[in-house]
């Protein structure tokens, strides 16, 4: 469980997040949705501490993250998994070395155990046998899947994904969404996903937070989102002709 309490963040006087309070539940795929530039990435980076908040607190299972020193932060981060918008694989390392990275640093596993664990994770994201490829030899979707494998290798307690399926075709996107929501249950994680993809919302959105101009505008689940009276959220959800037509069909 992650609790965000009254955080503010501004860049050179320009407010990007304003009094954001929200909590993310364990064993759930929590989605943050919003328009481009609304502050989703900034919020996620504040939660994991890549950006320093101006004020407010972030609590991980009750422990205040914002006031921790570097060592404590490093310790809790070993339970994090994060998927960056551009995958952020280490491009001098092979797929296997990328996934094995945390095992090498933080465990005393034998080579055999590491190998098994890497292969298990690769299988989990449907990339068996790609161990020896370099990131530059992978497609965009494959990179994202390797990044997921790398994120889950040490059974994280918290998983953060920044637009896991942007730039992917709808089928692959759904595959990745499913993967994220499956492993959330499998590993008992608290998962936070940034997205502006409505397909994801309908597929996996157990808790959805709509953020607009740096403020939390609406919270709920995927069933409630279609019936909401909130004007901004409606505009966001029903922005495309396809969805509008589907709603008409629904109404008939």
């Amino acid at each position: 469980m992650i609790e965000v309490r009254h955080i503010n963040k501004s860049f050179e006087g320009e407010k990007v997040l304003e009094d954001v309070s929200v909590s993310f539940d364990q064993r759930k795929t929590n989605l943050i949705i919003g328009r481009s530039g609304s502050g989703k990435t900034v919020l996620l980076k504040c939660i994991v501490g890549l950006l320093e908040v101006d004020s407010g607190d972030i609590l991980y299972s009750g422990d205040c993250f914002t006031t921790m020193n570097r060592k404590e932060k490093q310790n809790i981060r070993q339970r994090f998994g994060m998927l960056f918008q551009g995958a952020a694989l280490f491009d001098s390392l092979t797929v296997e070395e990328n996934i094995r990275f945390k095992l090498d640093l933080f465990t005393r596993m034998t080579a055999r155990e590491k190998k098994d664990r890497v292969n298990f994770c690769l299988e989990r994201v449907n990339l068996e046998g790609k161990n020896r490829l370099l990131p530059s030899e992978l497609s965009g979707g494959m990179k994202k899947r390797v990044a997921i494998a790398r994120a889950i290798v040490l059974n994280p307690r918290y998983l953060f994904c920044d637009e896991p399926n942007s730039g992917l075709d709808p089928q692959t996107a759904i595959l990745i969404d499913k993967l994220i929501s499956d492993i959330t249950l499998e590993f008992n994680m608290t998962t936070v996903v940034n997205t502006h993809d409505l397909n994801s919302v309908m597929e996996i959105g157990e808790k959805v937070v709509y953020i607009h101009e740096g403020k939390i505008w609406w919270q709920g689940n995927r069933e409630e989102i279609l019936d909401t009276e909130n004007r901004e959220l409606n505009e966001f959800v029903f922005a495309t002709r396809l969805v509008r037509q589907l709603r008409k069909l629904d109404d008939i």
Partner: peptide
């Protein structure tokens, strides 16, 4: 950033 998130 990815390194940082891993606790390295």
């Amino acid at each position: 950033d990815a390194l940082e998130i891993m606790g390295v």
